[in-house]
Structures are given as structure tokens and as C-alpha cells.
Design a protein around this nucleic acid. Structure first.
Lengths: 107, 107
DNA sequence: GTATAGTGCAACCGTTGAGTTGCGCATGCT
DNA sequence: AGCATGCGCAACTCAACGGTTGCACTATAC
């Protein structure tokens, strides 16, 4: 599983997945909960969740017969770090963000 | 072209395109210049450039027989804004970034 | 004028991705 | 025990993506 930043961006590219991330918030959510709020099947949601998990954006926690997914923020920070280091040199606002993130990642 | 944030993330998902963005830096680059540095054909580079342009990440400038592409930072800032507003509530580092970006975008 | 470097289609191929349906397994409730 | 709920796997369709080859067009250089 090389290219973690790419995996993060690919995961964020899909509207359903972004919606899911917004929906699960801090308390997390289950596949069927998300499927209730989205215009797609529970199985489709499950596949999206598995991709989000592969990208490390989300972590499952099984409790009883439920599997609750919660966000893992680290890859998101890495993604921001990449954008900042890629565009920070000639864009002031991004450059200022770089002071807070302080990463040295290159693709 | 609805879903601009999604288009940005999709554009950033490909390693070749990220590499191209890093390579063109502030002064920009042409298709053949980039093709010289990448293990793919010039036509492949051209297709990537056209996708980057569709996502608004890059703007072409024709001068003579050259077409020089330069980065447009606004979509990158929007992408960072989305990440921050999605994950800022329960992650401190992202939350601090939010103070600088200050966007209200939701997907 | 002729050659050449740079660009822009267009067609084609293999792979991946999003979504569906259908079925089976496990957990919890009564 | 029996039923319902939630999850997981597998097969399939359809469209989009990354990459290639081939050809035509334009502008500079000689």
C-alpha cells in the first residue's frame, strides 16, 4: 500500500465518501445508518467504508452486531501538508498554513 | 462542472499529476518539458494537463508554439478548507488550521 | 521553401471504480 | 426455538481512467 497521500486524495474524490465523512462526525456511524441518509444501497456504503478504511481515513469498532466507523484524522493532516508544501512557495495563504503543519513531505 | 472540491481531489489523486504540479512550480512548464521528466508519453502528459485545467488547478498560456501551464492556487485552498471543516471539530491541529482558512464549505 | 520542434485531436486497450442484486452468517430480542 | 436486524461476500453491469499509437496542424529555424 504505497502512496498514502494518493490514497487519501482518491478517497476524498468521491462525493458519497465525503458525505459519509461529514455525516459520521466525531461519534462515528454504522453502514446501515449511513445508508439511510444516502441515495445508495447499504452494500455500496460498505464498499465505500472499506475503501476509507484502506486509506486509513476511518477505523472500524465492532460492538455486538454493530460495526461503528470513526474518523482517523492523521491522513487528513498529511494531505493538507502535501498541498501546503506543493503550493506554499507561490501562494501566501497556503504558505501561512505551512507554518502550522510543518511537514516536509514530497510526492 | 459541479462539485469543484471533488474535481480537485480527483486531480490530486494521481501520482503523475501530483508530480507534475510539483515540477511546474511557480514558473510553470510545458507538456514536453514535463514528459521529459516523467516515465510516460507526452500525450499522456497532455491529457493529465487537460484534466488539471478542467479542475481549475492549472491555467494554460500560449506563447508562440509553446503552451506553458501554471498553477492556480484557489482550488487548493478550497480543498484545504473542506478538509478543515470536515475534520476540524474533533482534531486540534486541523481546527487551528481552520482559523487561517475560515471557509464554511460543506460537501 | 523545407525541415523540425511543439501542440492537438482521435481511436483503441486494459484496469479500476461505483453501483446493483442475491445470498449466507452472526447477533440480539421475545 | 424462531424471527428480525445488521454485516459480509460474490458476481455482474456500466462508465471512467491511464496509457498507448498514429496522424494532422502551427510556428520557428535554416
Amino acid at each position: 500500500m504505497t502512496d498514502p497521500v494518493g490514497a487519501t486524495f482518491a478517497a476524498l474524490a468521491d462525493p458519497s465518501r465525503r458525505r459519509m465523512l461529514s455525516l459520521m462526525g466525531g461519534s462515528g456511524a454504522t453502514a446501515t445508518e449511513l445508508a439511510r441518509e444516502l441515495p445508495i444501497t447499504r452494500q455500496a456504503v460498505a464498499k465505500h467504508l472499506s475503501q476509507l478504511a484502506s486509506a486509513g481515513l476511518v477505523a472500524p469498532t465492532r460492538q455486538g452486531r454493530e460495526t461503528r466507523y470513526r474518523i482517523t484524522p492523521e491522513p487528513l493532516e498529511d494531505a493538507v501538508a502535501w498541498i501546503v508544501q506543493a503550493g506554499g512557495e507561490w501562494d501566501d495563504r497556503l504558505a501561512r498554513l505551512g507554518a502550522y503543519v510543518g511537514g516536509d513531505r514530497t510526492a
